[in-house]
Computed example of a mutant assay.
Amino acid sequence: MSQLSRAAMKWSRLMETAQPNRRLPSTFFLSPKLFSTEASDSSLGSADDQFFRIPDSGSVYGRVNNITKFTTKSDIINVLEGCNLNPHNLKVEYTRTYLPKSMMVEFPSRSAYDAAVKSINRKGRLFNMIRADKAQWDITTPYDGKVILLQGIPRNALIDDVERFLSGCHYDSSSIQMFVRPTDQGPIRMALVRFPSQALAMHAYITKNRGFCLNNQITLQVLH
């Protein structure tokens, strides 16, 4: 066999090995982009991205931090001027021992939320606000100045004793809840009592704060 014939046969074998294997599925030869681990639609984003995305319409929620026990809803409304808020758009979040820790705010629109951010930045960031969602707003109990916390109730006191302590006040007797909370001074027995209005709750606070239930002096706190 001549040298030229041997070269032709070698070239023929190389061409055959370069052809796709017919026994493999056709998808094997498709573009590698179809096997990418990246999402096919980048506009979907991650769950975190969707949480922090502010909706263009509907209510928008925020959490105002750095409040103290003396911070009122009116204080926050004054700071967030121009946001079209009223007291019903705010809920105070409390710790387990009922110290105020933050305030949830329901803004009527995205533009109102943006105005609140600008207002906080303009006023030196006395408070700090972060985004929240509707679920966080929903689980926050609204007290609205109609609930009073009684602290220091004797361990042996009954609901009847609490009712005698509140004699002369107009309240919902079925709303009384008694419980114990750990504090720096040790476990303290407390009670929550709901009143029909803010005025009636404030009347009870003025007339009963520092009064005695059995032999214990009771401290009252209005929850907002």
Rank of each mutant, 00 (worst) to 15 (best):
S59Y: 07
A116V: 10
L24R: 06
T141P: 05
P182M: 10
W137L: 02
N66Q: 13
F212V: 04
V92I: 15
Y94C: 10
K134E: 14
K69C: 15
T72P: 08
L126M: 09
V180M: 05
I218S: 00
R96T: 12
V64I: 14
D75W: 07
N21C: 13
V117F: 11
L14C: 10
A116N: 07
D56C: 03
D160C: 02
T71N: 11
K146D: 07
L30G: 13
K73H: 13
M178D: 00
L90C: 04
G62E: 08
G186I: 09
A115Y: 01
N78T: 05
I76P: 02
L30W: 14
T207L: 03
K146Y: 06
S74I: 10
N121P: 03
T207K: 11
E93W: 10
H170Y: 10
G152P: 00
L85G: 11
Y61R: 05
T17D: 15
A116Q: 12
V117E: 09
F35I: 06
I148G: 11
P55W: 06
F35P: 00
S31P: 12
Q151H: 02
N209H: 11
S42W: 07
H88R: 14
R122S: 11
A39H: 08
E81V: 03
R53P: 04
S12Y: 15
K118W: 06
V64T: 12
D114T: 12
R23P: 01
R13S: 09
I176F: 02
Q50W: 01
G211L: 01
H224I: 11
N65I: 04
S197M: 07
T97Q: 14
A191W: 01
